[in-house]
Design a protein around this nucleic acid. Structure first.
Lengths: 236, 236
DNA sequence: CGGTACGTTGAGTCATATCAACCATAGTGG
DNA sequence: CCACTATGGTTGATATGACTCAACGTACCG
């Protein structure tokens, strides 16, 4: 878990570029944020915090990708969500003043800002507009979580894998060669879907046979989003 | 979906008795709440609102039990949570100004108060203490949802059913004869666990054989919480 | 009394997990 | 430079948990 100090663009610039919740802070508040934040670099595999940790602040991601997960039976990870540029993690534990109920690990090398707990609490308590946005953010995550519960409970692994691929396309996009802009190990994919690594491998190669995707090691080329949608049985 | 008007104790009294979020409102605010709320009665099976509805307010439960669920493949319900005395539902949709992402149906006859959207939004925008409590509430639900995702993804149906029974004991308690204070159909149990009705029936009768529970129609007597805990493989 | 909703049981099937073996790749250290 | 190890990917064989389908029992209700 290496950390390096270095400089980064001011928070106000970043907040507007990324459309983050910090957009709703006042000029003074964002100055304080800028002053008190701690800029850090992390490499793939680094852990930001672990389930059960009492944490003294939360993180805003400037670049890179973080996975947020819970650890279940015999250490198997269940990935809850990914966080990328402009998104914040660990704010839940700060706000409810509980120890972390998830862990966070770097998927793609990251630049993040660490922000002390007190600051978030003060902003929430003093700035109603910001507070309202935080509520919306949390509500949004809650809606997603509920819908994921329904999916996992009712859909087959095949349907869920197709859905996860579509979701990854929506969240991270594809490059000009149609390659997904996030690359995960088979095990990580399995830990999103909630299945065994071998099942992911088999299903991916089925999708490949059906010309829905192409595989190049860890890189996935998405050929037929409509086809995947059909498989995933998305409820509108 | 029958509704009746009638009188009920003032909100301030109720809020303190039930320890609800409304405890954090000012005297003036709770007066307004009291004045603008609409008291209603619902019977088992009544629907408060449906997924996709645009709703003009939210509900505070005074007595009875409501199930909040999402509708999945071919109409199968996935129960997300229950709400009981002092708890509020549908606030998520109000706050994020989206149509409902769940439905709500009465499990045990209810007295509820219907509160117009504007009121909640005003309270949240003007009362930081209340707003902070709303954030905590949402964060708490989020933590529970995340942990349920992990459970469904990683545990067997048997483990989950045991866990659900324990959770129901925690939430609703047992009477002096050790009967669970909520009675659900087998199908409803299945819709919490995320499985088929028949599977619940078979597993319940296994639990009965193993002297963990006793069954009397819809009523469940919980004999051995420790045993259920062991089966459920609870992660501390 | 028939109707409807719920509960139960058995049999058969299938998706998915598990176990095991093997390959590819990259990094490490002597 | 090569053996060594770790990590990730793949495939096949096998086991089994859980679902589906179907039949039937039970109980309440108008």
């Amino acid at each position: 878990m290496k950390q390096h100090e270095c400089s980064i663009s001011f928070c106000d610039k970043c907040a507007f570029e990324t459309n983050s919740v910090f957009k709703y802070l006042t000029r003074d508040e964002i100055e304080r944020l800028n002053y008190e934040k701690d800029f850090r670099l992390y490499k793939r595999g680094d852990i930001l915090y672990n389930e059960g940790n009492r944490i003294s602040g939360f993180y805003c991601i400037n670049s890179g990708i973080i996975k947020v997960f819970k650890t279940g039976i015999d250490g198997k990870e269940q990935i809850i969500r990914f966080a990328r540029r402009g998104e914040i993690i660990a704010y839940r534990s700060v706000l409810s003043n509980e120890s972390a109920c998830t862990s966070a690990k770097v998927v793609e090398d990251c630049q993040v800002c660490f922000i002390p707990s007190e600051l978030l609490i003060q902003f929430v308590k003093n700035n109603p507009a910001f507070s309202f946005e935080m509520i919306k953010l949390t509500c949004h995550e809650l809606a997603e979580a509920n819908s994921y519960i329904t999916d996992i409970a009712q859909k087959t692994v095949r349907e869920r894998l197709a859905e996860v691929l579509i979701q990854l396309v929506k969240d991270f996009g594809i490059d000009d060669q149609k390659y997904l802009r996030i690359s995960l190990t088979r095990e990580e994919l399995a830990n999103i879907v909630g299945t065994a690594t071998e099942s992911v491998i088999r299903l991916l190669s089925e999708f490949k046979t059906d010309k829905l995707i192409e595989l190049n090691g860890r890189r996935i080329k998405v050929l037929d989003v409509k086809g995947l949608n059909k498989i995933s049985n998305i409820i509108i």
